[in-house]
């Protein structure tokens, strides 16, 4: 597993980051070391082992279909860096 600049740039895109050059080369080297270590997992034969995404086997936690009053809009928008009276504001998404 080699973390080259192309892969690093791809991970940056996926992560929605724009790393300064210094950080980028540093994280590249870190990822290289960490992932090389993680490759250790290949030593274990896991054929037929079901992946476990929760620590327990519980199933079926449901909420009944009841509509309750929502939050007052001012609370929803309270932390927004940019907002109008009724919505969050983003720079325009369509050219």
């Amino acid at each position: 597993m080699t973390i080259d600049n192309k892969l690093l740039g791809y991970l940056e895109d996926l992560s929605c980051l724009a790393l300064p050059d210094g950080e980028k080369s540093r994280l590249g080297a870190d990822l290289q070391e960490i992932l090389s270590y993680m490759a250790k997992l290949a030593e274990i034969d896991t054929t037929g082992v079901a992946a476990r995404s929760h620590p327990f086997d519980n199933v079926n936690a449901f909420r009944e279909d009841e509509a309750l009053p929502s939050y007052e809009r001012g609370r929803i928008l309270a932390n927004a860096p940019a907002k109008s009276g009724e919505a969050f504001i983003a720079p325009k998404t369509v050219e």
Binding site: A61, R63, A67, S70, Y71, R73, I76, L77, A87
Partner: peptide
Amino acid sequence: PCSTAFGGAPNTQVCPVCSGMPGSLPAVNR
């Protein structure tokens, strides 16, 4: 539990869960 009714004023059928606030968690509607 926010309402699904169509046509409400913007952001009036919203809570921490559906607006993705930190620490909020989903619970499935049966």
